[in-house]
């Protein structure tokens, strides 16, 4: 008998939870299990991992039985790749710039411009004006207003 996946969304979801549960169980094996009477640090996470694996199996298993319209949103063109990757990237860049202490102003300019690129039409002039305005507003509120202790530029102290 050939098994056919009737609900792709549930199938992947089940698989994901199964994997996450297995990961939790695997990572908990270094923590002492203890007994029910005296729970070790591994007791709770191990059981949670098993429970999660159980949910994964049931959700995934039902995807072979119950028809769903959940497969549609998963086609290649249904994923918003550009916003997804660009916003994540812009935020990571901002975090790294802040940690490198290049200053509040350049970091924010990078964040505003970077995240603007996530939109499908980029209007460059508008984006630049926006980045300057947002940064100026943020500096006024956070640096001069509530006095957050960040340097403005890499040359300021």
């Amino acid at each position: 008998m050939a098994l056919k996946i009737k609900n792709l969304q549930d199938f992947w979801c089940g698989l994901l939870f199964l994997a996450l549960g297995a990961l939790a169980v695997y990572m908990s094996k270094d923590y002492q299990m203890g007994t029910a009477l005296e729970m070790g640090p591994g007791y709770f996470p191990t059981w949670l991992g098993f429970i999660m694996m159980g949910f994964g199996v049931v959700i995934g298993g039902l995807s072979f039985k119950i028809e769903g319209n959940g497969s549609q949103g998963l086609r290649w063109r249904d994923w918003a790749f550009r916003p997804w990757l660009v916003t994540t990237g812009a935020i990571v860049v901002y975090a790294l710039l802040m940690d490198a202490e290049v200053g509040f102003v350049p970091s924010l300019i990078a964040l505003v411009i970077g995240s603007s690129l996530a939109h499908k039409d980029v209007h460059w002039v508008e984006t630049l004006v926006l980045s300057v305005c947002v940064t100026a507003g943020a500096v006024a509120i956070f640096i001069y207003g509530i006095e957050m202790p960040y340097r403005l530029f890499w040359w300021s102290e």
């Binding site: 924010l108 964040l111 505003v112 995240s115 926006l130 947002v134 956070f142």
Partner: peptide, 11 residues
Amino acid sequence: LFPIIITMMGI
């Protein structure tokens, strides 16, 4: 709007 929102979250 959305770059402003992201900036506020970042700060």
